[in-house]
Every structure is written in structure tokens, then in C-alpha cells.
Simulated scan of single mutants.
Amino acid sequence: MQRLHAKIRDIPDFPKPGIIFKDVTPLVKDPAALRLSVHQLLHPFLGREITAIAGMEARGFIFGSLVAWELGLPFVPLRKPGKLPYDVQSVSYDLEYGSAMLEIHIDSLDSGDRVLLIDDLLATGGTAKASCELIEKLGAKVEAIAFVIELDALGGRDKLHGYEVHSLLHY
């Protein structure tokens, strides 16, 4: 994991003063590090009965679509409002500095689907929890949630009680 840690760049005071943003751009720029991160994200779930991979906009699309490709499974995008062209289900949730909403096409998942949810970062857990609710609104089951980075001090894992959570890097 040291190889992956070395590819995460700290950006101070972004998006606001006092925040140290964990930038995955250097990781995705390096093909070997990106491949390693994708394999480490999917490894705990090999052999499981996962039927779809979902990822949250935007960096969850990067890692989630690559995991889906590796596993030969469909990728389901969870998007910001107004970005999906078909009928959608939506969920609103609170952020530490406001509120947000995610949407999913109503025909993206079926009641028998078992979903691996993927994103780049687990901070306070609000986006991940809302994503789980959105997947479950369609009748699918969240099999597990995988992150590249987890910011332990922010307690996001606590909001995901009852879900299996896998994170590659901890800060």
C-alpha cells in the first residue's frame, strides 16, 4: 500500500480553508498504480455473488467502471441531478457544508441485484449512505462498499453501520 500512498497528493485549503484534500489524480495518472488500486479494490470480493458495480459521480466512475470491466459486470452511475436522461429515482442528503442529491436510472438495477458500491474517498459517509439508500430504493442489495481512501477521523464508517466497508488507504 506504500506504493499507493505515495501517489496521493495533499492539497491544503481545498475546497475551503482548513481542509486537506486528498488528490487521487497522481494515482490515476500512473497506469501501474491505477491497476494496483483497482485490483486491491476488487480482490476481497472475488468469488462473491456480485451482479453489478455502482459508482458515485465523479471519481467513483473512474474506479467503479474499471472494477466492473475487470469483473465483467455492468456499471451503474449514481449522478448529480439533471445528468441522467431517463426516468430516475433520487435521494437527498446532507453534507458538512450544505446538501446534495444523487440520482439513478429506475431500470439500472433489479430486486435480485447484489451491488458493490465504489468511490474514491470515505469522509463523513453522507454520500456513501445516500448511495446505499438509492440502490436499495430500486430493491437491490448493497453487498459491500469499497473506497480507495478513508479519512478515519471523520467517522464516515459509523454512518455505514450494517454494511461491509473495505478501504485501501487510511489517513
Score class of each variant (00 low, 15 high):
residue 143 E to Q: 03
residue 77 P to F: 02
residue 28 V to E: 01
residue 13 D to V: 15
residue 146 A to M: 06
residue 24 V to W: 05
residue 23 D to Y: 02
residue 41 L to D: 05
residue 79 R to D: 02
residue 63 F to L: 12
residue 56 M to C: 14
residue 128 A to N: 11
residue 11 I to N: 13
residue 64 G to E: 01
residue 22 K to S: 13
residue 27 L to Q: 04
residue 111 S to Q: 08
residue 137 K to T: 13
residue 96 E to I: 12
residue 118 I to M: 03
residue 45 F to R: 10
residue 56 M to E: 02
residue 120 D to E: 12
residue 36 L to E: 15
residue 90 S to W: 03
residue 93 Y to L: 10
residue 63 F to Y: 12
residue 113 D to G: 00
residue 86 Y to E: 06
residue 86 Y to G: 04
residue 112 G to Q: 15
residue 128 A to H: 08
residue 86 Y to I: 10
residue 55 G to M: 06
residue 17 P to W: 15
residue 79 R to S: 02
residue 7 K to F: 00
residue 36 L to A: 15
residue 61 F to V: 04
residue 24 V to K: 05
residue 13 D to Q: 13
residue 58 A to D: 03
residue 113 D to H: 10
residue 81 P to H: 10
residue 119 D to I: 08
residue 151 L to D: 11
residue 26 P to I: 01
residue 102 L to P: 13
residue 32 A to I: 01
residue 114 R to T: 03
residue 119 D to C: 10
residue 148 V to T: 10
residue 93 Y to K: 12
residue 78 L to V: 00
residue 129 K to A: 10
residue 148 V to L: 14
residue 126 G to Y: 01
residue 44 P to L: 05
residue 94 D to G: 11
residue 27 L to R: 05
residue 67 V to Q: 08
residue 85 P to C: 02
residue 110 D to G: 15
residue 82 G to M: 10
residue 15 P to W: 11
residue 147 F to S: 07
residue 168 L to E: 07
residue 121 L to M: 09
residue 120 D to P: 09
residue 32 A to S: 08
residue 83 K to G: 00
residue 165 V to Y: 05
residue 85 P to R: 08
residue 22 K to A: 11
residue 29 K to D: 14
residue 22 K to H: 15
residue 110 D to W: 07
residue 70 E to R: 08
residue 106 I to L: 13
residue 8 I to R: 04
residue 130 A to T: 06
residue 30 D to V: 00
